[in-house]
Amino acid sequence: MAILIVAEHDNATLKGATLHAVSAAAQIGGDVAVLVAGEGCQAVADEAAKVAGVAKVLLADNAAYGHQLAENVAPLVAELGKDFSHILAPATTTGKNLLPRVAALLDVGQISEIVAVEGADTFKRPIYAGNAIATVKSLDAIKVITVRGTAFDAAAAEGGSASVEAVGAAHDAGKSRFVGEEVAVSERPELTAARVVISGGRGMGNGENFALIEKVADKLGAAVGASRAAVDAGFVPNDMQVGQTGKIVAPELYIAVGISGAIQHLAGMKDSKVIVAINKDEEAPIFQVADYGLVADLFEAVPELEGKL
């Protein structure tokens, strides 16, 4: 068996999500090749070559792949993928955008967001917002899979010594162009990779009040998240959203502040090791999943918490 992993990167550095996919590949078993498709991305390929467990790095460096538009990258992955039994990518927005297109070009199904490997062709994945776990067996010759990062440990970033090989002709489908981007700036750790996450919900009242939990976050070295209600109310940008339709996190400690605990939010955080809820409504569903619950007014409890850390 041979496994192709599509690397997640920004042309400068390899994103951590890729390391989780490498671990999933190790559980499937087989030679692991990592494809780095981008523009001016030699540094990423060198980084990928050092990842423990990677046998080979395929580098497709071309202007057509600069922004990793699915229309251009999918034909490349489908072409290279014919020689592999499995094609994996992290279940990030990039991976989710790309892999179904690859699968359709190969005329095979795609299995989304696996959380466990049961065998080379059998995987577990959550359905119904995480309220049920399905075990599915792939019937296709090539298995195209996205991997939920929080379900697999990260592979060691050092220790490997894979060869880097330039591959692939340029595919420019001419169907799409990159126009621009707005990147949210944050000095705190990335949500999906943070050891501690503290999130605010509608109970925060407004965006300014998020400063209260940011102070706690800084003391704990935590990332700051939000519920969909807080995002929809315009308190914070949507890339902070934790939930079924936002990011899926599984930190060691998750602190939910002023969050009721709707199904859609729980789907994004219920695999956290320890959950703390601070809410003034003692009937809030969040208390059913919280290991430690504090029924209190967040505007008093959160500053007090910050003071005691």
């Binding site: 922004h67 538009l69 990030t92 927005t93 990039t94 799409s176 162009r177 990159f178 126009v179 621009g180 981007e181 707005e182 990147v183 949210a184 940008p237 890339d239 990011k247």
Partner: peptide
């Protein structure tokens, strides 16, 4: 997208 917003034509 994960980091914010991206516009494509």
């Amino acid at each position: 997208v994960d980091g914010g917003l991206q516009t494509v034509g």
